[in-house]
Write a protein that binds this DNA or RNA. Sequence first.
DNA 1: CTCGAACATGTCCTAAGGTACATGTCCGTT
DNA 2: AACGGACATGTACCTTAGGACATGTTCGAG
Lengths: 181, 181
Amino acid sequence: MSLRHGLLGILAEGPASGYDLAGRFQEVLGMVWPAQHPKIYAELGKLADEGLIEVDSVGARGRKAYRITPEGLAEVRRWLTSTEVDHTMRLQALLRSVFFWLMPADDLRRHLEAEAAYYQRTADFYRELAAAKDRGEYGDSPPTQAIRIAAEAGIRLHQALADWAAWAQTAPLSTDDDPDA
Amino acid sequence: MSLRHGLLGILAEGPASGYDLAGRFQEVLGMVWPAQHPKIYAELGKLADEGLIEVDSVGARGRKAYRITPEGLAEVRRWLTSTEVDHTMRLQALLRSVFFWLMPADDLRRHLEAEAAYYQRTADFYRELAAAKDRGEYGDSPPTQAIRIAAEAGIRLHQALADWAAWAQTAPLSTDDDPDA
DNA sequence: CTCGAACATGTCCTAAGGTACATGTCCGTT
DNA sequence: AACGGACATGTACCTTAGGACATGTTCGAG
């Protein structure tokens, strides 16, 4: 249940509406923790019921901005410092790699090339994000510095996968070329 | 819905029981695609209903070994070659890093050290696995070669995270040292 | 022969995630 | 004045994941 803490963490930066939060999860956070607006609105309702957040203001078009409460701030801090990190890494690309031997050699080559290109693109995206932060385009507030650190992980992870996909094309593997079996 | 394809892929290597599959998912696959036995038994039932696998033999202690059918094999191949890769990378450690600025500096330092140690350990685990494969301890059948490739990804990803955690300790970050707020 | 560990399969319930559906507002352009 | 796009919030439903519970068997060690 990390979504609630993700929401609390973003709200710790300042008040935001469900729509705002959905946007944030879409752009940057979405690559590391996808969340759709229905889940977000539902979770915000629960957090408000529990007193971890409260309505800050109601604006035009029914916009409801939430503000984190002291209890909510304490809860994110507790999560960050006192709970075990879940190291689960569900990567479909890696699951697929276990079954590469079932792919015709030609399809596999194309697949690895596409994968390498995708990961390289994504690594470059994070590289650009990091560069923009380093140029000071987003200021240097603590939240911005933290996102810079997260971006570095994005760069390193995706570059590692891009290099891996390139390496995999040179690795020995007898593929099963007969699709009729 | 990758679990079904994960099961089909393992069964493509040869007949296995739900218990066997749970074991396989626990050891190696578990790090990339966790699955508990209740899910596995349920999915095996569905796969059998759809004719993608069938009961191969019933042994002692109610052991039911399943065998992949030609339709099942075609389905894994279809999944591998004709479906889009889901690049979602849900990493709690990365989500947390976005909120590092909320952690007291001392807790953060300890946290990053523990994280670095964990990732280094895991990278070394995959390194040992890869070395064993390279020494030929598991033969050199196509499935073994594929697992060697997957292990390489495990090494690179976890090493990247270990290096990142070490780097993060040197990155500029004004943390919020006041837990009462 | 007894007992514990590993073998072996399953049900049930809850939580979490994802898609589709549904509704209404405000603003800028044509 | 009409319309489209971005803003904004929600409900309903279905699938997937995970933990708790439940049951019975075989085998080896003491």
